[in-house]
Simulated assay, not measured.
Amino acid sequence: MSNPLHTLLGTRAQRLAEPLPARPVRIAWYAVLFLLGALGSLCGCFVQALWSPAGLVFALIANGAVSYLGLRATGTKLGAGVPLIGWFLVLLVLLSPRPEGDFVLANGLDSYVYVLGGWLPGLICATLPTRSPFTFGIPRQRD
């Protein structure tokens, strides 16, 4: 009986056997993933506050989904990390107070969980084994 998670995500051997996309394709993916991470941060700040607690769960799952997309689309660990960079940079702007006294993220448990837990799905995705042009993450083949 096959594991449904392996069917969805693929096995370790399948992920390591996937070919890397060409360098220009990876660079384009990095730009798209950065923008998706930034957009996810902006949307996540509002969604987690509007539909608490389901919005918080949705925002965290979306962070993980974009990071996993980056991992699989680029075949590198950097692909999982680039959305986090965009997410974090937009989050820094949204966390800063404005002169008028307005703010996007209010003090509350949901906001703290979003800020402190939003990077965790991307970090988990970055630890998964991948193909990499620098052989980082590829187990050594014994002769």
Rank of each mutant, 00 (worst) to 15 (best):
H6C: 04
L9P: 06
L9Y: 13
G10F: 10
T11C: 06
R12N: 12
Q14I: 02
L16W: 08
E18L: 13
P19F: 05
L20F: 12
I27M: 08
W29L: 09
A31C: 14
L33F: 06
L35R: 00
L35K: 00
L35N: 01
L35E: 01
L36V: 00
F46I: 12
F46Q: 13
L50A: 15
S52R: 12
S52T: 15
P53C: 11
G55L: 05
G55A: 05
F58S: 11
A59G: 10
L60G: 08
I61D: 01
G64Q: 07
A65I: 02
V66D: 04
L78W: 13
G79P: 06
P83E: 03
I85H: 01
I85M: 14
G86H: 02
W87I: 04
L89N: 02
L91T: 15
L92H: 01
L95D: 12
L95Y: 03
P97Q: 01
R98L: 15
P99N: 05
E100M: 03
F103A: 11
L105W: 10
A106G: 09
S111W: 00
V113P: 07
V113L: 15
G117E: 07
L120F: 11
P121S: 05
A126S: 14
T130P: 01
T130Y: 07
P133R: 06
P133K: 06
P133V: 10
F134E: 15
G137I: 02
D143G: 13
